[in-house]
Design a protein around this nucleic acid. Structure first.
Lengths: 236, 236
DNA sequence: TACATTTAAATTGTAAGACAAATAAATTAA
DNA sequence: TTAATTTATTTGTCTTACAATTTAAATGTA
């Protein structure tokens, strides 16, 4: 503090880090430095207390936080382990903050679906393609215009075909959030023939494993769906 | 338990929910139901204790978890508030679990950048375009092949032009993680002229506000970058 | 000896009480 | 009226104790 007095130092922009946040940082660092890997067992609460020289509630707050984020799993008597992969719950919780800004949710979902279909074009297996084809065949036999279940299934297969758990952890909550908060597009707004045509175009592009064509088809489809979703939104 | 004994009930698939997790669910529900909005003040710890009939450490674990996720902000004497928007930290922490699977990180980043450039094509402002042009002009004057700073800036402007805080909260950690864990592509692998051409193509598409062309240009660019990043990865 | 049951142990889960730290609000002094 | 001081409020940390869960070890029985 005997430094140059003319230097403006904005001390207020520093946020004080609680002890539990510091413990979290240490634990995250174990992963980032490769000292521990997904699946590995962490030290027990008692051991952490000794290592970090803090009280047990501080450790518990840190671990509870990491568990809610899906980064660790805690089991009585067994211990605490790093998760093998992230799940959907953390991102689903984060989405709650945008619950009142649904158009932004729709927007990011569209963007992610477009990125996803690119990945799928590169990585999709014959098995995945077969399953996509099945949803298309199922849609051809539908008795009504309501293809919402098949539509969801179609998008889920594409999400799965990317074989990227992190991506799935992000897109699954979006798909579910979208369904939950927006409900389904009203029946009278549906055109099974158009949706089916869109799905077939996307499928064909994926068969060719052509990312740009897959993208263009998906973009076309999602714009159709997005406009209906936003119209539905304005009706609420 | 005097039900039909022939029904198989897999009780093991139910995970016991701790009290703090239940408190978290209640708080998230406040957001989901619109009872409270981003920016609103939550009840104090003492009030929660009374409402939920649990001890203070349970409340604190719940609130600490929500704070790490960026969903709430806690200030001494002031209280606890829902955040206005999500930040980057939660997703950055989630990424730590994939620290040992870098190709999957690269992959999801590419997918997200592609979705993002679509959004940008729809929403970009003249101001954003001007800033993109500035990075391009700056690149034209670079003395060496090292355009990593300008490349980062280019992608950051695009991320910002989508004007979607949630999306930014996801893509920023990916951009930073990528930079931090992968470092920069070695100088001898760089071709300023190619990168510049890619950026110009993307910029031109954005000027036209053409999503498919923006996508195709970005895909071309990111494939170039991705291959170099993966080659660099194999060298480590 | 093998299997079943009981007990002990290890770790997480919860509660209560006390004090500390930060800071806004209220009160007092100039 | 403004500035300084004090008080009050809320979060932050710690200690202690007990509860709950679950697995391993020990004991009992056939």
């Amino acid at each position: 503090m005997d430094d140059n007095n003319n230097t403006e130092i904005d001390m207020k922009s520093l946020k004080r880090k609680t002890l539990s946040e510091q413990v979290i940082d240490e634990i995250i660092n174990l992963l980032m430095t490769g000292k521990l890997k997904p699946g590995d067992r962490l030290p027990s609460e008692q051991e952490f207390m000794k290592m970090c020289n803090v009280s047990r509630p501080v450790i518990r707050e840190a671990l509870a936080s990491l568990e809610v984020m899906g980064i660790v799993n805690r089991k009585t008597r067994h211990g605490t382990f790093f998760s093998e992969q992230i799940g959907s719950r953390p991102f689903a919780m984060m989405l709650a903050l945008s619950a009142s800004n649904l158009s932004s949710i729709i927007e990011i979902r569209v963007a992610l679906e477009l990125g996803l279909v690119t990945l799928a074009a590169e990585k999709i297996t014959d098995e995945d393609l077969e399953r996509l084809k099945e949803t298309i065949e199922k849609m051809k036999k539908l008795p009504t215009e309501d293809s919402s279940e098949e539509d969801k299934e179609f998008h889920k297969i594409i999400a799965h075909s990317a074989k990227n758990p992190l991506f799935e952890g992000v897109i699954n909550p979006l798909q579910q959030f979208h369904d939950q908060m927006l409900g389904n597009i009203p029946i009278e707004d549906r055109d099974l023939k158009v949706t089916l045509e869109h799905h077939i175009n996307i499928y064909d592009a994926l068969v060719k494993r052509d990312p740009v064509e897959a993208y263009a088809s998906m973009y076309h489809h999602l714009n159709y769906v997005k406009n209906k979703a936003i119209n539905n939104l304005h009706r609420i």
